[in-house]
Amino acid sequence: MPVIPVSLAGRSYEVRVGTGLLADLPAQCGKLLRKAAVPVVTDETVKGLWGETVEQALAAGGFAARWFVLPAGESTKSWASLEKLVDWLLAEEVERNDHIIALGGGVIGDLTGFAASVVKRGCGFIQLPTTLLAQVDSSVGGKTAINTAAGKNLVGAFHQPSLVLADLGVLATLPRREMGAGYAEVIKYGILGDIDFFAWCEANGAKVMAGDAQALDYAVSESVAAKARIVAEDERETTGTRALLNLGHTFGHALEAQTGFGDRLLHGEAVALGMVLAARYSARRGYTTQPDAARVTAAIAGAGLATEIAGLGLNCSGQQLAQHMLHDKKMDAGTLPFVLLRGIGDAFLDKQVALDDIAAFLAEQLA
Rank of each mutant, 00 (worst) to 15 (best):
K143P: 08
K143Q: 04
T144D: 11
T144R: 06
A145K: 01
I146T: 09
I146G: 04
I146P: 08
I146A: 10
I146K: 02
I146L: 05
N147K: 00
A149V: 13
A149P: 10
G151L: 02
G151Y: 01
K152R: 06
K152P: 11
K152Q: 08
N153C: 10
N153E: 12
L154T: 09
L154Q: 15
L154G: 07
V155Y: 02
V155L: 14
V155E: 07
G156R: 03
G156T: 09
G156L: 09
G156D: 14
G156Q: 09
A157Q: 13
A157M: 12
A157D: 14
F158Q: 09
H159V: 02
H159E: 03
Q160N: 14
Q160M: 07
Q160T: 01
Q160Y: 00
Q160E: 11
Q160C: 03
Q160G: 03
Q160H: 14
P161D: 02
P161H: 09
P161Y: 05
S162K: 10
L163H: 02
L163C: 08
L163E: 10
V164R: 00
V164L: 06
V164C: 00
L165K: 05
L165H: 05
L165V: 08
L165M: 12
L165R: 07
A166V: 05
A166G: 05
D167K: 09
D167W: 06
L168P: 07
L168R: 09
G169E: 11
G169I: 11
V170T: 15
V170M: 07
L171G: 00
L171S: 09
L171Q: 03
L171H: 04
A172R: 15
A172P: 00
A172S: 15
A172Q: 15
A172L: 11
T173L: 08
L174Q: 13
P175S: 11
P175G: 11
P175M: 10
R176H: 10
R177F: 13
R177A: 15
R177V: 14
R177Q: 15
E178I: 10
E178N: 03
E178Q: 15
